[in-house]
Design a protein around this nucleic acid. Sequence first.
DNA 1: CTATATACGGAACATTGTTCCGTTTTTGCA
DNA 2: TGCAAAAACGGAACAATGTTCCGTATATAG
Lengths: 206, 206
Amino acid sequence: MSADVPAAGDDIGQSARKPRAPRADAVRNLDALLKAAMAVFTCSGVEAPVREIADKAGVGVGTLYRHFPQRVDLVVAVFRNEIDACADAAPVLASVHSPGEALGLWMQRYVDFINTKRGLAAALHSGNPAFDPLPAYFCERLRPALQSLLDAATAAGEIRGDIDPDDLLEAVGGLSRSAPNGDLTQARRMVSLLVDGLRYGAGPKA
Amino acid sequence: MSADVPAAGDDIGQSARKPRAPRADAVRNLDALLKAAMAVFTCSGVEAPVREIADKAGVGVGTLYRHFPQRVDLVVAVFRNEIDACADAAPVLASVHSPGEALGLWMQRYVDFINTKRGLAAALHSGNPAFDPLPAYFCERLRPALQSLLDAATAAGEIRGDIDPDDLLEAVGGLSRSAPNGDLTQARRMVSLLVDGLRYGAGPKA
DNA sequence: CTATATACGGAACATTGTTCCGTTTTTGCA
DNA sequence: TGCAAAAACGGAACAATGTTCCGTATATAG
């Protein structure tokens, strides 16, 4: 309790109470693990053995467990990562497309996301409390992303303004899950239809 | 291919090509295993180790695997067993209660069933194809059971006649799942309400 | 009562998740 | 640059499972 930090006020700069910066190899390996896990989960499902992931990342299992004390931690990290990627796609699309196009494109991106996560969704309902915060994070990130696209499209008069982002996310989720096998094309068509529907009755500031 | 059965036409009686009746101890153990598995699954969840079940049944794991070549086979067997029990309750209730009462009582019985199977339902969506036939069996057994109760109540003029049994099963499932923890009382009240709703507009042969 | 098919039991094996610790690498400092 | 300490690494070893195997025990037919 007394020999916590050598002296007061000798921060590295980023944040308080950090005696040292993270090591370079640790950062490298963490990244490799996340990439490998993403690939393996996509290919072999979330039930894939940890050793397979460690091998693919080129590290030992000890290293994997140093970064992710439990197997589920890795699953959660990957899922958060992909939620982030999907959410971050929104501003990028908005910057290079018209508001209406950006909305449509992002919705298709979201279809991909949902479809890839078929297996993960099952894991979520496995009763493991480690997964509990994920749905909240899902909403927290994706809702604002979609909201901003909706706002922009509404402001541009391209869609109606009474759309609830949660409704849309839910609806697309339902549509994508309906596609029985990996046949995304149907889901894509339905979502296209849905987006077209948003344009019905469009006008400046309903 | 040629030395399949000693002679032709020497059936035991039950079915063809059965050179012998099942042994008594095998029947006993099968029963004990099902009972033990039901208890253990209810108490410790469907993830419970097979050894625990074998111990509780008083048999070795070898015996367990003789009757259920895979772990999932045991889970499926237990589930089918409980579906049967729930379906079979319908005619029993119908024989000792008025049609309307029997319907209400059976619905409550169904709430119990759904609630007990909370963990099993999660297992169903685990992607294991061994579970695939279960939902079909679920409908195949429960729909006619409920249909017969509905028919009787309709014929007696106690409820309206335009009720789809699948809708009801689905609705009760949803209501029961809504109950967050093991608090059945809320689900029970909602289902009671639902059954009362069936009585609205009741009359002889809508 | 005996022979035989059948079933039993549990040790042994395979596949995981997880821990442990000796070794290696990076980093801060002189 | 060279060095010592801290941090991270690797993978063998452990634990908890599902599954297989086979010698032994038992029920049944005749």
